[in-house]
Write a protein that binds this DNA or RNA. Structure first.
Length: 339
DNA sequence: CCTCCACCGGAACGTGAGGAGT
DNA sequence: ACTCCTCACGTTCCGGTGGAGG
């Protein structure tokens, strides 16, 4: 949406011959000050190496470049809370004050955040120099999503192939997940593909249900494949425990098995602290379910289980040369009853 | 009510890769 | 050749803690 407006702005400016430059940055993907500034420079065709320069140096180059071209520069920082939460608001402070040092140019900043409390994280000085205007967009509800879907559907599908129920279901499913329009469109697209492959004439609700499963299934496979090695090994540990019908696993159990399979693979195991972090990451992407539980006398730990199909993990890991031979391994600590 | 387990999770620090400038 | 930079990924250190069992 912002990208759309931004494009419109850029086109309009071009049409009017106005010196306007725009730059869209997703701060979750561009997660450091350095990279944000590098992206800003990039928008001005100033080449910045992905590492090597001091942050201040990059900032100076950006300022110089903007000012020398008499530009109106609009920077959009999407998911800006992700950047501020991890790196602090120093960069915002610098950016808000940039106009004081620019002689011939102006810059504007648009920040987008899903966190309504985000502004409380900011230094009051930043907030005041922002002279900000806040717009709150509430998530789309189901009926709005339905309108959006019908709107796009007319472009993408032949008339009559789309059932009312299918569109409503896409809208309802997406609305229950923060009203994400992209999600709704994805569902509809995949449902369309499935319908076509089956040679059916109309997209029905059943196809949408299948599409939902399909999207999730593909997402999990993709995630499993692209995991870093040690995350895979940790997950492999959870898998082996599940295979041995161990009901509840805690961090310590997982770590023990993890160490074992590292040994078998001739790898140096990471520390438990790190593995604990990996478990949290796996939880965040939805491959594991880990929640802290206090077992009283028996300490405080995380209870961990797979949150995707056991068989799917086995299937995907069997395609990885380094993991294949671990899939049938029975951990010693299971045999001697320590777990 | 108190203790104490088995971790949790924040923070500081280290390392090695990739690169700039001089 | 040398110094200085960022970043990703780890390690080390350590204070914190919910609740079963005494």
């Amino acid at each position: 949406m912002v990208k759309y407006v931004l494009n419109g702005l850029a086109r309009k400016a071009y049409g009017l011959g106005a010196a306007v430059r725009v730059c869209y940055i997703n701060c979750r993907l561009t997660g450091t000050e350095y990279r944000v500034l590098a992206s800003l420079c990039n928008a001005l065709n100033v080449k910045i190496p992905f590492t090597g320069l001091a942050v201040g140096e990059v900032f100076d180059r950006f300022k110089l470049s903007v000012d020398s071209r008499k530009l109106l520069f609009v920077a959009v920082l999407d998911e800006i809370d992700a950047l501020i939460k991890t790196r602090g608001d120093a960069i915002l402070y610098e950016l808000t004050r940039i106009n004081e040092t620019l002689r011939r140019s102006r810059t504007s900043i648009v920040g987008i955040s899903n966190d309504l409390q985000f502004k409380e994280l900011l230094d009051p000085r930043v907030l005041s120099s922002l002279s900000e205007e806040e717009l709150v967009f509430r998530p789309y509800d189901a009926s709005e999503l339905r309108d959006i879907l019908w709107d796009r559907a007319h472009l993408a599908f032949y008339d009559g192939v789309l059932s009312d129920g299918a569109v409503s279901l896409c809208a309802a499913l997406a609305a229950s997940e923060h009203g994400d329009a992209r999600r709704a469109l994805d569902l509809l697209r995949v449902a369309g593909e499935l319908t076509e492959r089956k040679g059916a004439k109309t997209i029905m609700e059943g196809h949408v249900r299948q599409a939902e499963k399909r999207i999730e299934h593909d997402r999990v496979i993709e995630a499993l494949r692209n995991l870093p090695l040690h995350s895979k090994l940790v997950l492999c540990g959870v898998y082996l425990l599940g295979k041995a019908k161990v009901s509840s696993a805690v961090t310590g159990d997982i770590y023990e098995i993890y160490r074992e399979i590292c040994g078998r693979s001739g790898l140096a195991p990471l520390t438990q602290r790190r593995v604990s972090g990996l478990i949290n990451e796996l939880d965040a992407i939805g491959l594991l379910n880990a929640r802290v539980a206090s077992l009283g006398r028996y300490g405080r730990t995380k209870k961990i289980r797979l949150s995707v199909a056991h068989s799917l993990v086995g299937e995907i890991f069997a395609t990885d040369d380094r993991l294949r031979r671990l899939m049938n391994y029975v951990p010693k600590c299971l045999l001697d009853g320590r777990i």
